[in-house]
């Protein structure tokens, strides 16, 4: 293998500018985290609402929730990213469309976060639904027997249990958000993947670049895993298979 190694490349200056390559990677890391966390908040909020609605006894609400999930699950994330960036602004009313295209601040960041957030919300909705449906039917009846309204039954009986049960699948979803945020390169968000390509082309030190970026993605996955692990420990349900005894 004929390759010129240069591990000091990170501290060298980029070709046109006074930053170092390390600065580029740090910027990339920052945007990756910003996009992922914003998307995660959107996804968790929407996903919980839609997942819950899909278990209610109202037929049309369930159908709406199902349509949401199928829509976001059956189009590749990259295509969704391009749709949000290029197509959606065109379909807006004229004034709003002009504003989005020309004046909206941090356009790429907002688009990427919303897109990734909605995409992930469909997957979370699926898990929330499964979590609620895994509860014994008696829990719902118990709530009703106590004289709770349906929203109260969800709020005080079903959801607190369901959310604690689905922490493990949510962990892998949280790790996926960081991985999926890499697709934002397509709309020029300056996140890690975008920066790694830029650095690879600019410095021609591909292997060093990719090693660094891969490690940074590892760090994200590891931290996400640990954070969720902590949450899992604290919220364990006593008496369940994985719970405290």
């Amino acid at each position: 293998m004929n390759y010129h190694w240069n591990w000091g490349i990170f501290f060298e200056q980029v070709k046109n500018g006074d930053e170092t390559y390390l600065d580029w990677l740090i910027t990339g890391f920052g945007w990756t985290i910003a996009v992922s966390l914003t998307a995660w908040i959107i996804a968790l909020t929407l996903g919980s609402v839609i997942g819950t609605l899909r278990t209610t006894p109202r037929g049309w609400v369930v159908a709406l929730g199902n349509a949401w999930v199928e829509f976001f699950r059956n189009i590749p994330l990259l295509v969704q990213m391009l749709l949000w960036f290029f197509v959606v602004p065109e379909l807006l009313p004229k004034d709003l469309s002009m504003w989005v295209k020309q004046d909206m601040p941090a356009k790429e960041f907002i688009t990427a976060s919303v897109c990734l957030g909605l995409f992930t919300s469909a997957r979370i909705a699926e898990q929330v639904r499964a979590g609620i449906q895994s509860l014994p039917r008696g829990q719902l009846y118990a709530g009703m027997a106590m004289g709770f309204t349906l929203p109260q039954t969800y709020r005080y009986v079903l959801l607190p249990m369901a959310f604690r049960i689905i922490v493990p699948p949510l962990t892998s979803e949280f790790m996926s958000v960081f991985k999926n945020s890499s697709v934002a390169f397509a709309i020029s968000v300056l996140e890690l993947t975008f920066q790694s390509r830029q650095m690879q082309e600019d410095s021609e030190q591909g292997i060093e670049t990719y090693v660094a970026v891969t490690i940074l993605y590892f760090v994200c996955a590891f931290i996400a895993n640990r954070v969720m692990g902590q949450i899992e420990q604290r919220t364990r349900v006593p008496g369940y298979v994985t719970g405290k005894h």
Binding site: K179, Q200, Y210
Partner: peptide, 13 residues
């Protein structure tokens, strides 16, 4: 634990 996009870039390199 690596994004697929990075794996694609790695192999291509």
């Amino acid at each position: 634990s690596i994004p697929l996009v990075m794996v694609i870039l790695w192999f291509f390199l």
